[in-house]
């Protein structure tokens, strides 16, 4: 973007819908402003003191009907706009279970992104055009807000909890990424760019990223030193779930439900293992909340997500999980 910022490009699936509502509301409010201005000026001129216009009392009946009339009209207009906007937002909420899951970690004052195979980038986010994407975001310190004006999307990124943002880029190009929630000294430097590429370019870009990144390697070391491998290693005597190839699979839980082993699930299972117990296993794993730091947890998760299914050697990145 250069020159004068006026109307940002509409580069995501929801953007066109948002723009439609904006334009409609601009038209409606423009009409109302014109109406009010015309009435104000018209009355002010016509009924200025000394003018020859007819004066006198209004019949009480008309007063009441006019009043009720515009109250009702405003109420109907407001309800119509509410309904339209809400239907739009509800439509945009349908998340795609097969969406490309990218993890965003915000911290003072940078954006870190991690792609499914462990490719990482800072202050930039590469996305394939036309594919559903799910950003799972968390913050290390304060509240940040992930804001891409061209996508018409914004989502606060919270510390201690995760938030997510589903989107589908529709236009290739480079779009600015801002932190929209005030986050401290260098808030205005917490910028980045979102690069939307054709899917094949995206695949090429990702393949060109350093593979088998250090994070997963670090995670593997932690996996052993923290004691996970004591139970989860194939040779262990403890009856513990097999972790290889787990990421992205559907897991049957003890309460009968089924959950997809996405990163949130893995994360919860490490920090609070007793919450969602995999069917057929004893709840014996100790919780790691408060034991693992955020960085260590990230490393272990990276390792788990990079573990190939049975057969391949661990530590090697596996192909993107569930993309068709």
């Amino acid at each position: 973007m250069s020159g004068i910022a006026f109307w940002p490009p509409a580069a995501s699936e929801v953007a066109a819908g948002v723009d439609a509502i904006v334009i409609a509301m601009l038209a409606i409010s423009g009409a109302i402003v014109l109406l009010v201005a015309a009435l104000l000026l018209g009355f002010a001129i016509r009924y200025r003191r000394g003018s020859a216009a007819r004066r006198g009392e209004l019949p009480e009946l008309i007063q009441k009907e006019v009043e009720v009339g515009w109250t009702a009209a405003t109420a109907f207009l407001a309800m119509f706009l509410f309904a339209w906007a809400s239907i739009a937002v509800l439509g945009g909420q349908r998340g795609d279970p097969d969406a490309l899951e990218i993890h965003i970690l915000a911290r003072q004052w940078m954006w870190k992104a991690r792609h499914p195979d462990g490719a990482r980038e800072i202050d930039a986010l590469h996305l394939p055009r036309g594919e559903p994407v799910r950003l799972v975001m968390r913050s290390e310190d304060v509240i940040h807000s992930f804001y891409v004006p061209s996508f018409r999307l914004k989502q606060d990124v919270l510390p201690g909890r995760m938030t997510q943002l589903s989107l589908k880029p529709t236009q290739t190009g480079e779009f600015p990424l801002f932190c929209a929630e005030y986050c401290g000294t260098l808030h205005s430097r917490m910028l980045g760019k979102v690069v939307v590429m054709e899917p094949e370019d995206y695949a090429r870009w990702r393949a060109a990223q350093p593979q088998a990144d250090d994070l997963a390697r670090e995670g593997r070391a932690l996996f052993e030193s923290v004691g996970c491998s004591g139970c989860h290693a194939p040779a262990s005597r403890v009856h513990a779930p097999e972790l290889r190839g787990l990421y992205g699979r559907q897991v049957a839980l003890a309460d009968g439900s089924v959950r997809r082993a996405d990163e949130a699930y893995l994360r919860d299972s490490i920090l609070q293992p007793r919450r969602d117990i995999a069917a057929g296993y004893e709840p014996v794993m100790p919780p790691f909340a408060g034991i693992l730091g955020e960085g260590e947890l990230q490393a272990i998760l990276a390792y788990l997500m990079s573990m190939p299914a049975r057969g391949a050697s661990p530590g090697e990145p596996r192909n993107m999980s569930s993309e068709p």
């Binding site: 799972v136 919270l158 201690g160 909890r161 938030t163 997510q164 609070q272």
Partner: peptide
């Protein structure tokens, strides 16, 4: 959204936590 619940979430029920060894 379930994802936005705190990560360090204990059991939702009022039952006491199971006494795990150690």
């Amino acid at each position: 959204a379930p994802l936005t619940q705190p990560e360090h979430m204990e059991d939702r029920t009022m039952e006491p936590p199971e006494t795990a060894g150690g």
